[in-house]
């Protein structure tokens, strides 16, 4: 494709792709920052001695929650 022949409607094509980049970029940033914030919150709770019931029984820390077997009843 020759960009010099993009045509008189180039601004509409650019606007569509630019908005797609902004929306997808914003979604990725939102999901990543949310994860970071939640992980920090979990660590802060763990540091203050608060633990999940299943982890208190099993032993390991909350920050290892993704790999610790949990009681299904506690998840909801």
């Amino acid at each position: 494709m020759d960009f010099s022949e993009f045509g008189r409607h180039a601004e509409y094509v650019v606007a569509a792709y630019a908005m797609a980049a902004v929306v997808i970029g914003a979604l990725i940033i939102w999901v990543r920052t949310d994860k970071t914030r939640l992980e920090k919150e979990l660590q802060a709770l763990e540091a203050s001695g608060i633990r999940r019931r299943s982890t208190r029984r099993a032993g390991p820390s909350v920050s290892q929650a993704t790999s610790v077997p949990a009681n299904k009843k506690n998840e909801k």
Binding site: V31, D34, K35, L38, E39, E41, L42, L45, I50, R51, R52, R53, V62, A65, N74, E75, K76
Partner: peptide, 14 residues
């Protein structure tokens, strides 16, 4: 993220 959020909520409630 949502699972983590629910775990945090459960811990705070406990």
């Amino acid at each position: 993220n949502e699972i983590m959020r629910r775990r945090i909520r459960a811990m705070r409630m406990r």
